[in-house]
């Protein structure tokens, strides 16, 4: 009888795909942002703020940042699985990474929609 070593809960393919989909989203955004910066380089405070004042720019930036955080999670998780073999330490680091990425997501909303938020 073949004894299989169970290595996961079938999240391998999902993470592999997520890593690539988020990569493509980021590549599209970066090329588009680079084109914008080349066509009309922002030269003062006002032009930077105008660039991020449109709703679609904020949504596109947020989509980029969320892709970045998700991409970072898959990458960091893979690296921890490769190099940190002590389960306790690995789990602690993974929790710290997830927590930081959740905080970054909230922070991103605050940054991008700060002008609309009265409480800030």
């Amino acid at each position: 009888m073949v004894k299989r070593v169970v290595t996961g809960a079938h999240y391998g393919l999902r993470d592999w795909l997520a890593q690539r989909v988020t990569a493509v989203v980021m590549v599209v955004f970066v090329i588009f942002l680079a084109a914008m910066l080349l066509i009309s380089p922002p030269h003062d405070d006002a032009s930077w703020k105008t660039m991020f004042s449109s709703r679609w720019m904020r949504i596109a930036s947020f989509l980029f940042l969320v892709s970045l955080f998700w991409h970072a999670w898959v990458g960091m998780r893979n690296i921890l699985m490769d190099y940190v073999h002590a389960t306790g330490i690995r789990l602690t680091l993974q929790i710290l990474i997830i927590l930081s990425l959740v905080i970054y997501t909230v922070w991103s909303v605050e940054i991008l929609w700060a002008m609309e938020m009265q409480w800030r």
């Binding site: 003062d44 405070d45 930077w48 955080f69 970054y104 922070w107 700060a114």
Partner: peptide, 20 residues
């Protein structure tokens, strides 16, 4: 990288003299 990027974005977009 990520915290520095977010901090820079915050200063650039929300601080009155961010760019300067």
């Amino acid at each position: 990288g990520i915290p520095l990027l977010l901090y820079s974005l915050d200063v650039m977009v929300n601080s009155p003299q961010g760019y300067a």
